[in-house]
């Protein structure tokens, strides 16, 4: 594991305030310092509305910190870029493109030649298990399949880091379990740094190498857990349940 300890993303004293028309400035993130290591599976876990998504949006470059800076691969983040891939909660697939069209969108924008990008897209479509659906439009796919396309699309750009914003939040419980297994499998097959946001403890413990428990606004890190359970994990394993209880005790349960 030691060769994987390089820091890929670093938050340096990041503040984020929003200007709310009635309440004035509203601090969502306060003096946040996080280090994300290369190829680790980091889960940001916290109660609803605590600013988890804001953190992800800042790494992606959709939103800018009010103070401090975010360093990714040695450069300060100032705009969205293909080295930071995002999987959105509502999938954000392009409805007018087929599965293939969606997955090859990234390389196409980089000007990758058609044959090369088709080959690459096919590889990731196969990886997420959607062979045979290349020419379907997203509207014809189930929620779980749509999110597989979302994952393949982000992977196909071969980013340094994958940002997943509650990607399974809209799925039913059964599909959710299945997708957690799938994500673990995909991640083990194609190692990437992953930052995964969720408000589901079980999901956090099941997936993570490391969990950062966040507190309510202004968001900061409340606790940190290294999860060293072997994969595939078992929801009923005593150690799994112990960790679950331990984290649950730390979380802010107030709204």
């Amino acid at each position: 594991m030691s060769e994987n300890k390089n820091v890929l993303i670093e938050f340096r004293h990041v503040d984020k305030e929003f200007d709310k028309p009635e309440e004035g400035m509203y601090k969502v993130v306060g003096d946040l310092n996080i280090q994300v290591r290369e190829n680790e599976f980091l889960v940001l876990f916290g109660p609803g509305q605590c600013g988890k998504s804001t953190i992800l949006n800042m790494i992606a470059g959709f939103e800018m910190p009010t103070a401090g800076e975010i360093i990714c691969d040695g450069k300060a983040v100032d705009r969205p870029g293909p080295e930071r891939g995002m999987v959105f909660q509502n999938t954000a697939l392009f409805p007018w493109l087929t599965v293939m069209g969606n997955v090859e969108y990234g390389p196409k924008m980089q000007g990758v030649k058609k044959e090369e990008r088709r080959r690459r897209a096919q590889k990731y479509i196969d990886l997420v298990g959607l062979q045979g659906f290349e020419n379907s439009f997203p509207v014809k796919l189930s929620g779980g399949m749509q999110q597989r396309v979302g994952i393949a699309r982000a992977y196909c750009n071969e980013p340094l880091v994958m940002l997943l914003d509650e990607p399974f939040g809209h799925l039913d419980a059964q599909t959710r379990y299945l997708m957690q297994d799938e994500l673990t499998r995909i991640w083990q097959a194609e190692k990437r740094t992953v930052i995964f946001v969720t408000n589901n403890i079980e999901e956090a413990v099941y997936l993570a190498d490391r969990i950062l428990v966040l507190r309510n606004c202004p968001t900061g890190v409340k606790a940190e857990y290294e999860i060293n359970l072997p994969r595939p994990r078992n929801y009923t394993d005593p150690e799994f349940l112990r960790l679950r209880r331990e984290i649950d005790a730390v979380v802010d349960h107030t709204l």
């Binding site: 992606a60 470059g61 959709f62 705009r79 969205p80 870029g81 293909p82 930071r84 891939g85 995002m86 959105f88 509502n90 954000a92 697939l93 392009f94 969108y105 990234g106 924008m109 980089q110 699309r153 982000a154 750009n157």
Partner: peptide, 15 residues
């Protein structure tokens, strides 16, 4: 135009 689609497109490197 859906703002998240705009974000998705920028994230994938579109100018």
């Amino acid at each position: 135009v859906d703002e998240t689609l705009v974000r998705a497109s920028k994230m994938l490197g579109a100018n």
